[in-house]
Every structure is written in C-alpha cells, then in structure tokens.
Design a protein around this nucleic acid. Sequence first.
DNA 1: CTTTAACTATACCGATTGGTATACTGATAT
DNA 2: ATATCAGTATACCAATCGGTATAGTTAAAG
Lengths: 193, 193
Amino acid sequence: MDNREMILKTAKSLFYARGYDGVGVQEIAEKSGVTKPTLYYYFGSKKGLLEQLLTRDFQLLEAEMEQATVYQGDLRGTLYRTARAFFDSVSRDPEFYLLLMALFFSGRKSEGFRTVYPFLERYYQFFVKVFESAAGELGNMRGRQNQFAVSFTGCLQFYLLVRSRDTEDLSSMQVSNEEIEELLQQFLYGIYT
Amino acid sequence: MDNREMILKTAKSLFYARGYDGVGVQEIAEKSGVTKPTLYYYFGSKKGLLEQLLTRDFQLLEAEMEQATVYQGDLRGTLYRTARAFFDSVSRDPEFYLLLMALFFSGRKSEGFRTVYPFLERYYQFFVKVFESAAGELGNMRGRQNQFAVSFTGCLQFYLLVRSRDTEDLSSMQVSNEEIEELLQQFLYGIYT
DNA sequence: CTTTAACTATACCGATTGGTATACTGATAT
DNA sequence: ATATCAGTATACCAATCGGTATAGTTAAAG
C-alpha cells in the first residue's frame, strides 16, 4: 500500500474511533509511517484529508445505491433492495458508516459537519427517489415522500444503532434477509402484524 | 446568574455548536466572563464540566419521561404521550438534544461518548418500558420489545433530524399534535394508511 | 479583630495543535 | 550530464491545548 492510501486508511480508523477533532495530524502521520509534510503534500490540510477520504469512500456507496433504488413497479421490492444495499455497504465498512454519522451529528458549525453535509444530502436523495418513483403505488402522497424517506432511513439507522450499542464488535452490523423482511413488514403495515 | 450557571450555559452552547473536542476550556471561561481557575474550581476538569452539564439537564428529561411512559391500558395513548414528552423536551432545549446526539455518535473511544453513554442508556430504557408494559395488547412480541423501541425511537429522532437539516433555526423543532398522530399512525399501521 | 472558607485572578506549565520553510532523495526526460 | 519532477524528512513556527501553583479578595462566623 502506498503512502497516500495508508494515510487515508489510518485517518478513517482514527477519526472513527476518537472523532475528527479528537485526532491530531501528527498522530495520523506517525501511525501511517510517514511524516507530516508527506501528509500535507497529498492532502493540503486536515480538512482536505477528510474531504478526499469522504469523496473516495462515497463513490462506492453511491454506485450501489444508484443501482438498488431503481424502481421496477414494486415498492416493497425496491425498498428491500435499498435496505439490502444499505446494510451491505455498512457491514462492508462499518467504520466509515459510523464516521459519517459522527460527522453529521457533530456541531453544525464544526468543520466536520460542513465537510460531510453535502455528501449526506446527496445520499439521502436516493431514499427520497424511491418513494417518489412509487407515487403510483402509494396513491396521493400529499407530499409525504420526504416523511417516508425520513422514517425509512430512521428505521434502518436505528436498527444498526442498537446492534452496535454496547459492543465494540463491528461485525455485528450484519443484517440478515429475514431481518430486512421483518423491518419492511413493520414499516409497510405497522407493528400489528 | 452566578458564575457556575453561566459556565454551564456557555459550555452547552459551545459544545453544541462546535463539538466537545472542538471547544477549548479557555474559550468557555472567557465567554462566561471568568478565568480558567474559576472553571476548574467548580468542575475539576473538562470532563467534569460535561458530566455536571449532563447530570443537570438529564434530570428534567427523565422526570418528564417517567411520567409520560406510564402505561394506562392503551398503547397508542402511551406512545402519544411519550412522543409528546419527547418532542416537548427537545423543543424546550434543542441545543441540549443535539449535543446529546453529537456525543452519542462521537467515536466510541472518545471521552464525550464514554461520558454520555450511561445517561442515554437509561433514557432509552423508558422507551423499552412502554412496549414491555403493553405486552398484553401486542400479543406475543417474541422478544421484539427492543426492536419496537428502536424503531419508534428512530422515527422520532429522524423526524427531528430532517427538520433541522438545512436550517439553523432550532425553533423549527416544534412538532404539532397532528404530526404526532400521523407519525403514530404510520408506526402502528404502516404507510398504507 | 481575626480566622476561615468560598471564590477568583495572575501567571505559568509541558505537551500538542495545524501548518511550513528548506533541503534532500531517486527516478525520468532532455 | 543535467534539469525536472514527485515525493519525503529535519527542524521549526506561533498558537492553543488541558491543567495548576500561588496569591489575593470577599464575606460570614467566632
């Protein structure tokens, strides 16, 4: 692995564990086996490092969602594929997912939030798209696409959250097909089923 | 307002805006109109300041939830009161709520997370309690109390999230009774209603 | 009148923060 | 052979980090 790649990897892991503001550039460089000027050669600044990290790892994420969210005349099926893609990408790189969450919830005026916000906004639109393209199936949504997207995203997110609640074991972030079916059932028809 | 109170207030506001790690003790002291030794006299450490801040503001929160989550033979009613209490406490002090979220999502090994975790764990139990006490109404839950609590909490959380998405205006965190009814309807009977 | 205790300020600590000026490497192109 | 280039290291910067030793100040209690 070349130095650039090594720095990105180290940074992701450290940012995840102790937060963007909680980790110094010095430490990232050291644990990557390089010195600070090398890091600054590639990324220009700490913020630049975060930006390139997000840009790179978001590409896979968006490609997967692009595919999964294509509506094929069946809301449940599309939601299933969407949820599957979401959980898969999370379990493929749990650190990145948790880093995203951390940045999103970090103070609105923090560098971390400002940097991650546009990425997450784009990501969120994939979920909105699903409900919009299912307009025929859902009848008059009265502009509730956003509400649906939110509550669906919320279900997915918090499903994971509790998984990783008191465990350090990120591999527990894997969600089975059956669990998705259950989650979907509840989302579509409520908890009385 | 005495110095201690002033420091707590300033700290909450700054931590919310730029994150626990993003704010220095120096700045908190300055903006509170005191010097650092005064701050350390009252709180002992930066972590101590956060702890006392959480302890104080959680008391109100828990008292409200304690009341709201009493089951009275009607799940829907209890969920309504719970949601109402949740949204009220959030809109009463949006900064504190967002600070909690930020701390919760900050790195698992960060001081902020370690400090806030026990508080949130206790808070979460109120939601679990609701579904447990409604066991008769829901029939065999097959141990799904936790799943219900998670997905309900998720709905509430993300309802707020989108509210504050692209606005700096925290007052938009108010949720009307009608909105709660809608949210509840969806949670209980799914989105096809 | 003095002691005591709560509280606050001046001035400092070593360590770390994000960031850089400068010089050097080794490989490639001319 | 030499000039150019991406990439890397030594050594440094001012500023800030969390935290503290010490010396007041103030008001109530003896």
